[in-house]
Design a protein around this nucleic acid. Sequence first.
DNA 1: TCATTTTCTGAACGCCATTCAGTTGGAGGT
DNA 2: ACCTCCAACTGAATGGCGTTCAGAAAATGA
Lengths: 199, 199
Amino acid sequence: MTQPRRARYHHGDLKAELVRSAIELIGERGVTGFSMAQLTRRLGVAPSAPYAHFADRDALLAAVVVHGYQVFHAELAPELATVSAPRDRIAAMARAYVRFAAAHDALFDVLYHAGVDKVAHPSVAEAERPITDAFAGCVTALGGDDRLATAVEATAHGYAMLLRGGDFDGYDSAVREAADGAARAVLALVDGWGQLRCR
Amino acid sequence: MTQPRRARYHHGDLKAELVRSAIELIGERGVTGFSMAQLTRRLGVAPSAPYAHFADRDALLAAVVVHGYQVFHAELAPELATVSAPRDRIAAMARAYVRFAAAHDALFDVLYHAGVDKVAHPSVAEAERPITDAFAGCVTALGGDDRLATAVEATAHGYAMLLRGGDFDGYDSAVREAADGAARAVLALVDGWGQLRCR
DNA sequence: TCATTTTCTGAACGCCATTCAGTTGGAGGT
DNA sequence: ACCTCCAACTGAATGGCGTTCAGAAAATGA
C-alpha cells in the first residue's frame, strides 16, 4: 500500500486538500465556526502550513467561494438542459437556485454572507459570472434585456435568502414552498416587465 | 460640570451605550471588524463589563439587530406616508428598502449577514415583523395575498443584496439604478402575478 | 444604618490568525 | 552519483480575541 497522504512531509497536494477540507468543515460547523486551526489539525499539518499556499484566511475562503460557484454552476446546468422553452427555463433556474441554497446551506453562506471581497479576489468575480450569464441567457432568449435579467436574479436570490433566514414555515415543505414561490415570482416578473411603461 | 460618563464606576446606562457604540464601531469597521475588546476600550470599561448585560457577543449583536430594525422601520414609515396609491406605495417601499441598505450598509449587513439567530433571540424576529407587515399591508391593499407579499419582499431584498455585492456599476449611480430597478421589478411582479395560472 | 443585589474591575484561560527562523526533501544540473 | 537550490513544511512565538471568575464598589431598600 502506498499510504498516499498524511505521513509524507511533502504532502501530495496540500493546497487542494485545504480547500476540500475547508468545505467539509464549513459544511459541518458553518462559516462562523470554521477556523484555520481546526483545519490544520484535521489535516495533521502545522498551523502555519496553509500560509505557503494562501496569503491569509480570506484568501483561502476566496478559493472556497470559487469552488462553490463551480459546484453551483455544475448543478444548475443539468437542470436547465432538460428544459427547452425559454419561459420554463427561467422558472427552472429560479427553482434550482433556491434548491442549491437549501442543499448546500453552509456553502451558500460562504458564497454570499462571508464577506469575501470580489475586488480583492478577482477570481471570485470570475467564478460568479457563469451564473449571472445563465440568467442573462434565459432572459434574452425571451427578448428581455439586462435589467430584467438582474431583476430575475435578484428575485431568485431574495427567495434563497428568505429561505435561509427561516422565513418559511415547516422545515421539509419550506424548500418546496420557496422554490415554487421563486418560480412563480420570476414568471410574473417576466410577464409584468414588458407591459410596464417606466420612464 | 457633571462629567456625566466615563469617570463614574456605575456608569449611567452602560447597556444602552454598548449597543449605541457597537453600531458606531460596526459603521466604521464593518461587522467582521467589530470586536468586544475594541468596544470596551472605546467606552473605557473593563473587557468583562458587557457580560453583566449580555450573555455573549451574539446577544449584544442581537440587540444591535433589534435596534437596526427599528431604525429601518422608522425610515420606511415616512417614505410610505407621502404616498397613497397602493401601487405607488409598493414601488416606494422597494426604493426605500434599497436606499436603506445603501445608506446603512454596515448595519444592513448585521441585520442579514451576521448570522444572528432568530430562534435563539426571539426579540430579533419580533423587531423584524413591522417590516414584513409593511410589505404585507401594501400588497393586500392591492388585493394580493401573502405569497405575493413574500415575492415582493424577496425581490426588494435581492436588489439590496446585489447592490451590496457590488453588482451595479458606478458607485454614485448604483444606488439610484438599484432603487429604480427594484421599484420597476416589484411593479412588474405585482402586475404579472395575478394573470398567471399556476398549479 | 446595614444587608442585599447589581454593576463593574482585574487577572486569568484557552483559542485564534499570523509571522519567522529554520528543517526537509524533491527537482535539475553536473 | 553528488550537489545545489528552492518550494513546502515545522515549531515556537506573538498579540488579539471572547469569556470566566473572584472580589470590590455602588446603588437599593428595609
